[in-house]
Simulated scan of single mutants.
Amino acid sequence: MEKDQRRHRIAPLKTNVPRRMALEVHSHLRRLIISGQIRTGTILSQAELARDLEVSRTPIREAMRMLQEEGLLEISPNQRARVMSIDAEALESLYCRRVLLECLAVRLTVPIMSSDDRKRLRAALDALCTDSCRSNLRNFIQRNSHLHDMMVRHAGQNLIREIRAARETSELYLSLIYASQGKDWWKRPELEHIEIVAAYEAGQSDLAAVRAGQHLAQTAFELLQNFAPDYEPVRLREALKLIGSNTNASAVKD
């Protein structure tokens, strides 16, 4: 195993429900991947995981298949598994989906928010704008997810379910932003979150949707600039036009 692909030993998995073992393993590994504790590009061995988690290979194999279906693992014909690395087109497609779905959900949510909804949204923002989130990616991901849930809470369960699935997959990339931008990585998203919530509080659904779309797209632009600088995100630019954004997306070349 190459040096940059090494991982720390994973703690044993504690479960008292053998018939749910594959689901437990899947959930555990998924959290480790999304939080960045298992980094992109890491090679995962069924034998090593079985030893670390103290389970048999059968639930490991099923859990890895589930992770592959979610796009978090790449498995070759010889069963060599690698945690997903940056695929520029796949990343762009994911964020196009997020931009379009979440902007629709924002437009549906803002007009029918109650005063209590707006207070809860402000509380979610305040919880995110703290030193514990600025210095700990895991805390940031958890609080960020809650804030985005609040932003789309009246969009309907089916749409919310699609949005959450896309967001959870994109959370894998946040560890790359964190690693590539140093200690001040949180400043840009924090400022954008403040602007988005201000639009909610003013009841400006169109502005809130545009700000939310720009916020999501900017994360993708930064990732592409760092990890695929020659890739031109034409589809994402078109998605921004559809939501009424005239942003120039200065994070990437024109």
Rank of each mutant, 00 (worst) to 15 (best):
M1A: 05
E2K: 00
K3L: 14
K3R: 10
Q5W: 06
Q5K: 07
R7L: 01
P12V: 04
L13A: 01
K14T: 15
V17N: 14
R19H: 11
A22Y: 02
A22M: 00
E24Q: 07
V25D: 00
V25A: 00
H28C: 02
L29K: 02
L29D: 07
L29H: 00
R30E: 05
I33T: 12
T40K: 05
T40C: 10
T42N: 14
S45K: 03
A47M: 06
A47C: 07
A47V: 10
D52M: 00
V55L: 05
V55T: 12
R57Y: 01
T58Y: 11
T58P: 02
R61W: 05
R61F: 09
E62H: 04
M64W: 06
M66W: 12
E69M: 12
G71S: 07
L73D: 06
E74Y: 04
E74R: 03
I75H: 01
I75E: 04
P77L: 03
P77N: 06
N78D: 15
A81L: 14
A81P: 12
S85Y: 12
S85C: 14
I86M: 15
L91T: 15
L94I: 09
R98G: 11
V99N: 07
V99R: 03
L100S: 09
E102W: 07
L108V: 09
T109V: 11
S114T: 15
S115R: 14
D116T: 15
K119N: 13
C129K: 14
T130S: 14
S132V: 15
C133Q: 13
C133E: 09
S135D: 13
N136V: 03
L137N: 05
L137T: 09
L137C: 04
R138F: 10
I141K: 07
R143Y: 11
N144W: 01
N144R: 09
L147K: 10
L147V: 06
H148L: 14
M151L: 14
V152D: 07
H154S: 12
N158C: 10
I160N: 02
E162Y: 01
I163K: 01
I163V: 06
A165N: 10
T169K: 15
E171W: 03
A179P: 04
S180M: 08
Q181M: 13
G182I: 00
G182N: 07
D184I: 04
D184H: 13
W185C: 04
P189G: 01
E190R: 05
I194T: 11
V197Y: 06
A199P: 11
Y200V: 05
E201Y: 01
Q204C: 06
Q204H: 09
S205C: 02
L207D: 06
A208H: 00
A209D: 01
A212K: 12
H215R: 07
H215D: 08
H215P: 03
L223S: 07
L224A: 08
L224R: 11
L224Q: 12
Q225R: 13
Q225A: 15
E232T: 07
E232F: 05
E232A: 10
V234F: 02
L236R: 04
R237Y: 14
K241A: 10
I243E: 09
G244W: 08
N246V: 11
A249Y: 08
V252Q: 05
K253Y: 12
